[in-house]
């Protein structure tokens, strides 16, 4: 029994992590119809900001050397600044392009950033030790929950709640939701585009930074592609959730995360490496049944 509880804990932790990334993707999509590949590199660069650029595989710490609060703040600021920079330099000039052009441009930005990191830090994976104290398991009601898991759950839950409050209670948040639900209309009604879009990028950077830290603490390694899988999962999450729907994105993220953990646990050992393929197949099957995604917004339908 305890085993099942443990699996559930894992599933919820990963599900909420993916929900977080999916929300970051969904917010930016909502305000400018951009599916942002570069989100992966926000996450990667946030993590690399912890260390000094060297060729070493065990590099000395940079932001990682700071006291926890400063380190966290530092990473978040770096990633938010990066997100805003990409918005300003690459995406703003393309703002009125069609979604396909935007998608391909974010692919280019992502490729650029990834190679930039490689140029600075080399392509080798590196190990970094931050938050080691969290490796200890905490025992809650007979279930041993690793500290990192617990942290992930607390942080993601906290961020999700904060984000929901922001979107529901503040004027800017409400505008952002309106934009996501009906982009054209929000534009017509005079949504202050620059401000709302910049804010969406800032939030996606904030969430990206949080994910950077959580991933680094979990794995203790840095890798050029560390942001890729979460973001790819988040893409699929936004599609099965229904493009343009924020609750859909969160729900989708949660579903793919949970599915991933369940497959990892219950697949026979020799099929386990195929886990991601299984989840992605599931995504395609869901789309076969519901091409518009689980939650259909008016954004998905064009007015004739």
């Amino acid at each position: 029994m305890a085993n099942i509880v443990q699996v559930l804990v894992d599933a919820i932790a990963l599900g909420s992590l993916y929900a977080l990334v999916a929300l970051a993707i969904g917010l930016v999509f909502g305000v400018m119809r951009l599916v942002n590949f570069a989100q992966a590199d926000y996450i990667t660069i946030g993590a690399y900001a912890l260390v000094v650029p060297t060729v070493s595989v065990t590099p000395p710490l940079l932001l990682g050397a700071l006291p926890s609060a400063l380190m966290i703040g530092g990473v978040l600021v770096v990633v938010m600044a990066l997100a805003l920079l990409t918005e300003r330099v690459a995406f703003r000039p393309l703002r009125n392009s069609n979604p396909s052009t935007l998608l391909i441009s974010s692919f280019a930005v992502s490729y650029f950033l990834q190679n930039l990191v490689m140029l600075i830090h080399t392509g080798r994976p590196k190990s970094v030790g931050i938050g080691q104290g969290l490796a200890n398991a905490v025992e809650i009601g007979g279930v041993r929950v690793p500290g990192v898991q617990l942290l992930t759950m607390v942080v993601t839950a906290g961020l999700l709640v904060a984000l929901v409050l922001f979107l529901k209670k503040t004027p800017l948040g409400i505008q952002m939701r309106a934009a996501a639900e009906n982009f054209q209309m929000a534009r017509l009604l005079g949504m202050p585009a620059n401000r709302v879009i910049a804010l969406a990028f800032a939030i996606s950077g904030l969430l990206g930074g949080a994910v950077s830290l959580l991933l680094t603490i979990q794995t203790g390694t840095l890798d050029l592609r560390m942001g890729l899988m979460p973001v790819v999962y988040a893409f699929f999450a936004t599609v099965i959730g229904g493009m343009g729907s924020l609750p859909g994105a969160a729900l989708g993220g949660f579903l793919v995360g949970v599915a991933s953990v369940l497959l990892q646990t219950y697949l026979p050992a020799d099929l386990r490496p195929f886990r991601d393929a299984g989840v992605f197949m599931m995504v395609i099957l869901i789309l076969l049944v519901r091409p518009q995604g689980l939650i259909v917004t008016s954004a998905a339908k064009e007015r004739v």
Partner: peptide, 25 residues
Amino acid sequence: LVIMRLTGLAASISTLAVLFILNVV
């Protein structure tokens, strides 16, 4: 057969899924 039923952007992202599935397999 499956993917072309989707709208443009969702179809794009699903082709990404196809790429990943084959890569993993």
